[in-house]
């Protein structure tokens, strides 16, 4: 593109920049403004209240439960999804006969719409009719069905399990692409030096793809923290807040009770918590890789 064609460049960019500014950046700032104003269904005229809603939320039990749930949920899904995704990628990169078909088949949960996934798993978890309890009864684990989603001690684990089932194929996809780019001569050199498969994995493969691991974890961290559909359809945040995370709480407050000010304040809190999450992870990752130089 020559200097005099610059007008075209800006013309091409104009609609995109306009949309992103109006519908992504403005709402991001708008949420902060919204959080300083109190509105409710009965009293729809906004009233400026400063940090009043923040104080109210910080003092509430709900907030602490949601914060705790969000941390458990995010860490649980991100760690397990990446471990499983990585393991599956290694497994499907061994040159076994069925690997081509399996690589495509394993991606299916990732394509399956979130609401369908949630409905399907609600049914899988059904105490009487569900497949999980049926199989467990058949193999004699217990007589009566456990109510996985209705009991506050198992609900979170059950929801995390579904998120991993749907999410690990995406992690696998990225890891698989990274594994295929690993320099094979290094792997062979390590083999000649007498390194077994486990040592090769930890000493050659993982250091070679550590940037991809960083990207993958940050990506799944953000996606998981902002998850809505599966959690909402599976449990509506219940039982008794046991699976309420920031997005479900924001939706319930904003569109269930039309308390926009409070919903927006939860939105601001969620952005702050997410930012802390990502920052902490990047710091930990940086200091870890500084301590252990790659050979």
């Amino acid at each position: 593109m020559t200097h005099k064609d610059r007008w075209l460049l800006w013309l091409f960019l104009a609609p995109t920049l306009l949309l992103i500014a109006v519908f992504l950046y403005y709402p991001m700032i708008g949420t902060v403004f919204e959080s300083f104003r109190d509105t409710s269904f009965i009293n729809p005229t906004p009233r400026f209240v400063g940090f009043e809603i923040y104080e109210k939320i910080l003092a509430s039990r709900d907030f602490h439960e949601i914060l705790r749930n969000s941390i458990i949920w995010t860490l649980g899904v991100v760690i397990l999804q990446n471990l499983l995704g990585f393991a599956a990628a290694v497994l499907l990169n061994q040159g076994l006969p069925m690997q081509g078909v399996l690589r495509a088949v394993v991606l299916m949960p990732f394509i399956l719409p979130g609401v369908v996934t949630a409905i399907l798993w609600r049914f899988m978890y059904d105490p009487q009719l569900g497949l999980i309890n049926s199989l467990m009864m058949r193999f004699g684990f217990f007589e009566d069905g456990a109510a996985w989603l209705a009991s506050s001690s198992t609900a979170m684990a059950a929801v995390i399990f579904v998120a991993i089932w749907k999410g690990f194929p995406f992690s696998m996809l990225i890891y698989l692409a990274a594994l295929q780019n690993v320099d094979q001569s290094q792997v062979e050199a390590a083999t000649l030096d007498g390194a077994g498969p486990v040592r090769r994995l930890f000493d050659v493969t993982i250091p070679a793809i550590k940037d991809v691991i960083l990207v993958n974890i940050v990506l799944t961290l953000i996606l998981t923290f902002n998850y809505f559909d599966i959690v909402w359809v599976l449990t509506r945040g219940g039982p008794q807040n046991a699976t309420h995370i920031f997005p479900t709480k924001i939706f319930e407050t904003g569109f269930g009770q039309f308390r926009f000010g409070e919903a927006a304040t939860y939105g601001v809190f969620s952005i702050i918590v997410l930012a802390i999450f990502v920052a902490l992870y990047v710091i930990v990752q940086k200091s870890a890789s500084n301590r252990r130089p790659v050979a």
């Binding site: 920049l17 992103i20 709402p27 708008g30 919204e34 927006a264 939105g267």
Partner: peptide, 23 residues
């Protein structure tokens, strides 16, 4: 601007939905 686009993809939908709804 490309940086701004990349950052925008991380905005939580639940956090930006209320101003969009109002618009």
């Amino acid at each position: 601007l490309m940086g701004a686009v990349v950052i925008a993809q991380m905005f939580p939908h639940s956090a930006i939905i209320i101003p969009i709804y109002k618009m």
